[in-house]
């Protein structure tokens, strides 16, 4: 019999163009490296043009649905500050939320049609009891290149999941170009360190 309870679900979110797809790939490859059956789902097409983007990853002994139920995700990582809130209902009680400090202000805010929350940090703290706000861009620069910001977030995310660090590193090796492996592993470790210190 399939058992839903042994399947672990992870949410990645942000804005189209932020690299959710690569983040999702690394996370799912890490799960496969750890020996799990894995399914993922990401948004394609129209929704990508600067829109809000959701990536879903599920792993376990045998995974059925590629989609996640509300209140089920063990961890959520958001590449953009406010987007974490859009998908907060997926996180289970006690689940870890990793949120980048990066803000991307949509056109609807510039035109006055909607509003970006004034104090996003306060809002995040209200919504997520177990929260790790992370300066992903800053830590990526510290690792050598701002482009590794996504891997910083994955490093922080890894503290909320029980996948071995080695599996993550192998996943990075398999998913990024050889010349960026060292940079990304360094960024991953920075993110992991920052998240462990914050919890």
């Amino acid at each position: 019999m399939n058992n839903i309870s042994d399947t672990v679900s992870v949410i990645l979110c942000g804005v189209g163009g932020q690299g959710i797809l690569l983040g999702s790939e690394i996370t799912s490859v890490a799960a496969i490296e750890a020996g799990f059956d894995t399914k993922t789902n990401e948004v394609h097409g129209m929704a990508q043009r600067g829109g809000s983007v959701l990536g879903q990853i599920r792993y376990g002994k045998k995974v059925n649905s590629p989609l996640i139920a509300s209140g089920e995700a063990a961890a959520l990582a958001s590449f953009e500050a406010a987007e974490a809130i859009r998908y907060a209902q997926f996180l289970r009680p006690g689940g870890l939320a990793v949120v980048s400090t990066q803000k991307i202000v949509p056109v609807t805010v510039s035109t006055g049609a909607s509003k970006y929350p004034d104090d996003i940090e306060a809002l995040l703290r209200k919504v997520f009891p177990r929260l790790c706000i992370i300066d992903a861009a800053g830590l990526a620069v510290k690792s050598g290149n701002i482009k590794a910001a996504n891997t910083v977030i994955l490093g922080a995310l890894s503290t909320g999941l029980e996948l071995p660090v080695d599996a993550w590193k192998r996943a990075i090796e398999k998913s990024v170009k050889p010349k960026f492996v060292e940079l990304n592993i360094c960024a991953f470790e920075e993110g992991r360190k920052a998240a462990l210190a914050a919890q």
């Binding site: 990508q48 043009r49 509300s70 406010a82 987007e83 859009r86 907060a88 609807t108 919504v127």
Partner: peptide, 20 residues
């Protein structure tokens, strides 16, 4: 009743797809 999205209550900005 499924857990309700908190986005609406938080007045999150709309982020529809736009011309690049």
């Amino acid at each position: 009743s499924a857990p309700k999205p908190v986005a609406e209550a938080a007045e999150l900005p709309a982020r529809p797809p736009v011309l690049c």
